[in-house]
Nucleic acid binder design. Sequence first.
DNA 1: TTACTTATTGTTAAATTGCAACTAAGTTGG
DNA 2: CCAACTTAGTTGCAATTTAACAATAAGTAA
Lengths: 250, 250
Amino acid sequence: MKQQSEQEFLSQYNIHDFDVPLTSVDLVIFTIKDQALHVLLVQRGEHPFKGMWALPGGFIDIHNDDDLEATALRKLYQKTGVKTPYLEQLQGFGNRARDPRGWSATFSYFALIPSENIQLVHGANADAARWFVIEDGGIALDLAFDHAQILRVAVQRLRSKVEYSSLPVHLLPEEFTLSELQRVHEIVLGRSIDKSAFRKRIREGDFLEEVPNGWRHGSNRPARLYRLARGQPTVYFTRTMVGRETGKDG
Amino acid sequence: MKQQSEQEFLSQYNIHDFDVPLTSVDLVIFTIKDQALHVLLVQRGEHPFKGMWALPGGFIDIHNDDDLEATALRKLYQKTGVKTPYLEQLQGFGNRARDPRGWSATFSYFALIPSENIQLVHGANADAARWFVIEDGGIALDLAFDHAQILRVAVQRLRSKVEYSSLPVHLLPEEFTLSELQRVHEIVLGRSIDKSAFRKRIREGDFLEEVPNGWRHGSNRPARLYRLARGQPTVYFTRTMVGRETGKDG
DNA sequence: TTACTTATTGTTAAATTGCAACTAAGTTGG
DNA sequence: CCAACTTAGTTGCAATTTAACAATAAGTAA
């Protein structure tokens, strides 16, 4: 066998000479609506699993997507119009059985978006899209592919991260009060949290700033408005917050 | 356009009609040797990056691998002969630039194995394989593809998990003393840990059991041998362990 | 002015941390 | 046979932190 340069090797390389798996990106998009955690699902307009509800997602467009995140952002934008979500890679799922078209692997992502100003996109050719409430860590519906499993993993990951991070700010609009933020934590965790302990953590995490002259007025004492401090990444606490049981959900 | 059944759709579906990314699985295999964290690298025998050191890995064999984990386990077994490692999915990496053959995505895994009884496999046709010390969260060498980046992410993940979990037991042989376990924690974290605090956590984590009549003898008081309690999954603590600075490494 | 709601600050018992000393149980060497 | 040595494993304790609860402050609305 003659020695081959990398040049020569690459010029003769053809991916279609091999049996390769299908590779896709799927998204678990969360938001808070009506005091509950919701996930975005789409109704499939094509085979396989035509008519069933599924996570939004699709194949990587190797001509237009620079990387996996670009594929995820493109899909998210198509469905929600949101361009700057909190986006994090969840986990890969890949096996022989999950897709009837053949061996298939997916990179799943989860995204957090505020429910305000979201106009779900569904035109004539687009699949129907709808928000579904998360109950008991999942969805009552049967989902296409292994999406029910992916969703469960995503909910677990979200819950576990909320225990010890500032992540839930991304579920709220840009400006919010501490009570609203605490409420989001409680909704995701399914239990109540001590107010003073919560506020102490937020203060010490040092990732929020007061909105100048920003107050939320209601039929009570006005609440200070806060927003994410510029350039602050997600903050992780060293301890989990333990609270008393909450009445709902358990 | 006529209505198509899922049957018909699948019979006409051909993955080779589409431009798909290359999809592979890469492994970051850690062990403790000579009181230091090591990673297993292989020297590439073929293009691209022929001759460079890289993480072990390769393409999914859709005819023989049932799922992604099977691919990872197959590669691990080929290189080390180990069949039952601690194996965890790390992260997906995928973009246009990481592989000169074209758009490429990889599912990376990290594995922990005890260094005892490992006979690295390298025959005539196999790539050379060697353990390299981890320094400053990575490797001094240039690695093929984006493997230096993947390795850094793996080291970070390992360190962060060691902070709050029982994971390092998988770096030790089946039976070990508490001092040995503490030493492994210290090696991975790069700092020393308080003995009584460490032992209290282990006790309360309740994932070890005493080996009946098991003692490690030396020129001192014998140490009790422990092993992972059967069926115990990884235990996560709610708090991180903070220790004083250690003399070495910093 | 009173009722009501949310923000913010205190208070106290319990738990944890960091450090250090102490006891235990072997081996080694004179 | 005994004293020195080494590592294993336990115990003590003061300083600090936390959890959980309670009280007070600051607005709006009737």
